[in-house]
Write a protein that binds this DNA or RNA. Sequence first.
DNA 1: TTTGTTACCGAACATCTTGTTCTGTATCTA
DNA 2: TAGATACAGAACAAGATGTTCGGTAACAAA
Lengths: 180, 180
Amino acid sequence: MDRRQRRTRSLIFKAFTALLERKSYTAMTVQDILDEADIGRSTFYAHFETKDELLKALCTDIFEHVFSEEIMSEEHHDFSAHSTFKDRITHILYHLQEKQQSVKGLFSGECGEIFLRYLKEYLYRVFDEHIAENGAIPHDYAMDIAVAAFAETVRWWLKGHSDYTPEQMTDHLYGCISIL
Amino acid sequence: MDRRQRRTRSLIFKAFTALLERKSYTAMTVQDILDEADIGRSTFYAHFETKDELLKALCTDIFEHVFSEEIMSEEHHDFSAHSTFKDRITHILYHLQEKQQSVKGLFSGECGEIFLRYLKEYLYRVFDEHIAENGAIPHDYAMDIAVAAFAETVRWWLKGHSDYTPEQMTDHLYGCISIL
DNA sequence: TTTGTTACCGAACATCTTGTTCTGTATCTA
DNA sequence: TAGATACAGAACAAGATGTTCGGTAACAAA
């Protein structure tokens, strides 16, 4: 990837996240991003088709970092072999907290909802192998509840209760959800 | 309220819900609604400030129906006295299923998310009196999880699993959530 | 039935946002 | 050094938004 492309892409991401702390996502226009990043309109559209695609790309960048060790450990069979599923949950929370420092605006407001929607897509892969089949409860329903409960945990935690540790949050989650 | 106002308001609601089954909420413009309802632009803005306000008003109309018996029974102290909390949950599901017949488009897609967000506001009032204090788990966290789990149940149910009865769905919910 | 009020129509309007296209310039890579 | 390409900057059409206005029809109260 061209150095100029990386620079511009980074400028757009920085401007976008900076704006998110002052302005809501829907109220934000492409023009706002251009002004904040100080780039030309045609340049923006050379990188992203729409504002939504920009948000999606930013989320994907984050998730690939958060879940990278997850994926790696799955491949190498050394992390998942020696840790419980509960440890993996805690592990993901650690990474999310770490990321939150740099992109605070992304986690709250209407933008936070979209973020959590994308997050759920990754979570399904993680939970699928753990949620057991159950005669009484439909499996895909149990999956939805587990994923939603985790996402809700992240939201509650990063929205004003960051003083709890990832371990504590995992305990709280397990205290509410009986299918984990 | 003037008969003409009721008529126009109803026309707008009908056009809006009809459009939702063909078009996504964000893609839908005010102009689309005007064309579908066959009313003037100034008339629309005399009723609703924005498209978002229209959606909110529609949701409020629905919730006041769904939760009306809830409120009434609270006032008369005859429903809540003779039924369990689990019955109330089932009761709400019955009303939601009933409403779904007429406004299908409202429950799915991006619009469904906004609908569920508003629904949660009402659910908090219902759950607040039931979720017990717990030394280990923060009360507002337990509330968030319970409400989110219920909302997720509604989503899963009305989105392709309507063959289950409200009683069955309540059982499934109770099978996943240990704090109810 | 009459009278005053009010909701609606429809047309026009300025304003803003979007997404595309163009030319010239600067920067990268081979 | 030479060719490719990313960016700047400006201009553009198309469409959506929200407001304003005068005329018409429907309402409610006398």
